[in-house]
Design a protein around this nucleic acid. Sequence first.
RNA 1: GCCGGAGUAGCUCAACCGGUAGAGCAGCCGCCUUGUAAGCGGCAGGCUAGGGGUUCGAGUCCCCUCUCCGGCUCCA
Length: 647
Amino acid sequence: MQVTLPDGSELELEDGATGADAARAIGEGLARAALAVRQDGQVRDLSAPLVDGAPLEIVTAKSPDALELIRHDAAHVLATAVTELYPGTKVSIGPPIDDGFYYDFEFPEGATVGEGDFERIEAGMREHIKADERFERTDIPATEALKRFLEEDQPYKVELIEDLIRDQGVETVSLYRNGPFVDLCRGPHGPSTKRIKAFKLTSVAGAYWRGDEKRQMLTRIYGTAFLSQEDLEEHLERLEQARARDHRKLGRELGLFMFSELSPGSPFWQPAGMPIWNELTGLWRDENERRGYKEVRTPILYDVELWKQSGHWDKYRDHMYFTDVEERAMGLKPMNCPAHIQIYKEERRSYRDLPIRYSEAGLVHRHEPSGVLHGLLRVRHITQDDAHIFCTEEQVEEEVIACLDFGFFLYEIFGFDPRLELSTRPPVRIGTDEMWDAAEEALEAALRHRGLEYELNEGDGAFYGPKIDLHMTDSIGRPWQLGTVQLDYSMPDRFGLEYTGADNAEHRPVMIHRALLGSFERFIGILIEHYAGEFPLWLAPVQAVVLPIADRHLEYAGRVRDELAAAGLRVELDERTESVGKKIRDAEVRKVPHMLVVGDREQEAGRVSLRRHREGDVGAVEVSELAKDLAAEVAERRAPSAQKDLS
RNA sequence: GCCGGAGUAGCUCAACCGGUAGAGCAGCCGCCUUGUAAGCGGCAGGCUAGGGGUUCGAGUCCCCUCUCCGGCUCCA
């Protein structure tokens, strides 16, 4: 047989040769370094026979495939140690993931495993790695595997095999053995356990079997593995740095917002946080106006009759807050759409009025399950940058495109690059199939005509319509949804919305629900992490602080402060009788972008010594010029020239 | 909501096997009048999340509740 190597050369091998044979034929060093092979885009075991005539690539520690391979190996080693330490443990699945691996177990009755047990488990894993146990693959008939796992009382493996047989008509399955542990596994694996050069267990968590909350909760152990100790340490270092930009930590340190046990999931905005809020809502307001939206403001509490009519009562009740003062049942709004519908219905509408675009920084309350609350990123008190567009069917595509463009305009300001998802009809929904067909088609057309890439998320739409969502990730890579553009043919129907057409007949408008930042709470949370608390000037809570050196400079310092304030800047004067070093340190810790030191020299020259956050001393500048420059930078809402590295 | 973990001064963290709750920073008072990341000294600060229990004695052990953290499910 013959295979082609990456450099184009041909390698002649005996029939039935394996990856290991090929590596050896090329060189002893490579044979030692080889972890697996890649052929036809697939990674395979070194021990697997090669495909005749196909290009061959030897996977070594340098290959992009290597990490995934050894992490998968590590997951098996984890299961090996765990089943030894906790006899009777039932194993389920253990895949590699983005930055590590996990394995889900059902521990024997009464046993709980926490992070305190990691040391023992890791010690067990190290034993197996030291023993350099080979990963041996055997292909056996599915029925035989079924029998084996039934005998071993491994119900999760049994279920997996049963499903493989039933859904995919699988006849043979592969088992992998390393030391005493045998697992049902598709592979591939590295040659032996010793190739896992560095690993660490990171956390333990509950996870539903097959992600189904109605099924058994298993114990998931997370870990990570690398090809060298240095890589592992670097990874842990990165995690450490990511934690430093956690918005909850920065929010507390910078005095931006807080939470109280007395109102879980509801942020309290502290003085330093308000400028961010106000600047952001200001930007939102300016742009809405420029794009033809009319701002409205609506109540938060409504008769439950409204929620019954909108369908929220049926589909969303569990997430709503209710109250019945004086025997009248009322509910806090979880969405703004029914409120905007009331305004639409207040007058007769003509086709000449459409599209009508209502925007509102709408305060909604959603009873999010207690376990999911997460700083500003998942709250119960949500201020959406909401808007509802009432338009004709012909106008839908154009309006959707305008929404997306609006979104990209906003994200551009912050240097965000969101990911798009198109979500289609969910199993539980209102409206007819014809409505859903039209709505899904319209959204797809808008995406297609703008040439935008998106992921398809079938069955994930809102209960009243399909949607396009815009996603971002936080400092440690967790994805969060920001904006959403949702199409709705149902709500206008339920509320009997109409407009008079050119034909003098009544027609039904289409509604577009649209939030671009998502919610101001979440967006600010993402911003804090994105900027690591070092906001661009227009968002900085305090834009400049004047630092007099001694008491005799207080008066001049006050004049400097006033001049900058007159230019519209948020500026403070540090009047404390502290050393300059101390005042500078405090301003640096607060991440104030500009520090203006004034002493005898500056006072005499009518200047300030400018120090920039993280940059240090810049030198003396004219006060009037500085005021002008800073005001201009604020007016442009200029993004920072480049994202600075955290060090 | 589910699984696991945690909750000690405003913040960050100590407190051995159950034996008088302690430090740094922040705060307050004084001194220092200060030149680019912490000047010096003193004082004050606690129902150890809340409630119940075991014990001569509980921050520490047990039970319940609340909140937070990491996941899962769900979600802007």
